[in-house]
Design a binder for these strands. Structure first.
Lengths: 220, 220
DNA sequence: GATCGTCTCCCCCGTGCGGGGGAGGCTCGT
DNA sequence: ACGAGCCTCCCCCGCACGGGGGAGACGATC
């Protein structure tokens, strides 16, 4: 059974673009569209999509309120990916607080969009580190890196994965981690891959950055 | 002309070990030994070594005072590498403050020791990131990561190298950095290699870690 | 004029890394 | 008894990465 997606965006062009990108995938099916947040709930009830791709900035009911409403009023609610144009969008952070499972930039490459939908459909959460960095920067020294912290909380790393990430933040190679944990390097590679996927990181360096930004490890 | 080294350690066993490791290199020559800090200055004056490998904890005159004395009283002073048994050795930090060019753990692998001697002989400074991590940890939240910070100060990165390091801490690949700086990827590779060498990092991940530990970039 | 440091780019080369799969054993909860 | 989640290990594969060299252009310094 394919992953079913409901698109919610006030711009028809964006909806069309998302539909084109997602429909190109054999395992993804766009089952409906809505132009504002107010229309989301009845549609979710009727269509029961696996994933809702939702703009944060919309008339009537924005993505934050719509996210809250869906999670509050629907049982077995869909996964929610919020979409935004800006990297520095405080709405995004609020939407994540409201329970969204990930966020996407409109200018993300099609492959990233597809990847994100599949990931959240599988129950994973995701944020793109490059965007997280921007987000975190916005909240400055006082607010702290709440956004990045949220990534890690949502990443739901297993104990082993967390341990591997910790060793990654100490600068260890896969072979060294394997030696330290007394397992095979292939095992470490598996854990590392899982960590990268869950953190939305492209490589171990980005993973370590996210770890620092999130407070998973503290410098000094 | 080979790199000439003076060994200063109160334990004959350690001196013998260092001599064995260093003499095995065709380009390194151990020109003398001393058992305590007080004997260092006349020996330095007479032998004019390129590098002094000096224990921090010694009778009569410890490595810190000996380092200060050499730098204060000898012109064209040698490079000084302090040696310690413990990763959490506050003496080490003091020695670095006193002007030492790097430090070494006694349990470091021979290749690391050789590498360190060659590096400081060439005028580079070096600390091993893994040790830095330990050092930094000791100084806790209040004292901050002074040791790691010292690495970066001593690393004397050029403007371009610092810029490249900054982009590395944003998670960019060599190709992305090249695009950002509008230069070739080979150029970026050169800068990255220089950064790795100066920071004593094995790969970009370790470099990023050092950058965070040193406060070169601040999380959040 | 010569030297030094920096920035730029080039070559070759080995390998660690990460993506894409899969698979078996284990514990735990139902 | 069964599935879910986790940990473990395996395969193949492409490529970015990093080490080792070298070299030309430019400005500053002496």
């Amino acid at each position: 059974m394919p992953v079913t997606v409901l698109l919610v965006d006030d711009e028809p062009l964006v909806r069309a673009g998302l539909r084109a990108v997602l429909e190109a995938q054999p395992d993804i099916e766009v089952v409906g569209e809505a132009a504002d947040g107010a229309a989301v709930i009845p549609l979710v009830r009727r269509l029961r999509p696996d994933v809702v791709a939702m703009d944060v900035r919309m008339p009537l009911l924005d993505g934050i309120e719509a996210t809250r409403a869906v999670l509050r009023t629907v049982d077995a609610p869909p996964k929610i990916v919020v979409i935004t144009t800006f990297e520095n969008d405080e709405y995004v952070y609020e939407a994540l607080r409201a329970g969204a499972d990930g966020f996407l930039l409109k200018r993300a490459r099609p492959a990233e969009i597809v990847h994100a939908v599949r990931l959240v459909a599988e129950g994973e959460s995701l944020l793109f580190p490059a965007s997280v960095r921007q987000l975190a920067a916005q909240y400055g020294d006082d607010g702290g890196n709440r956004a990045a912290r949220a990534v890690l909380e949502r990443a739901r790393l297993t104990d082993r994965e967390a341990e591997v990430l910790r060793l990654m933040t100490r600068g260890l190679s896969n072979a060294e981690i394997a030696a330290r944990l007394v397992v095979g390097t292939e095992t470490v590679k598996s854990h590392v891959s899982a960590v990268l996927a869950k953190l939305g990181a492209r490589d171990r360096t980005q993973a370590v950055i996210t770890a620092y930004e999130s407070g998973f490890v503290a410098p000094g």
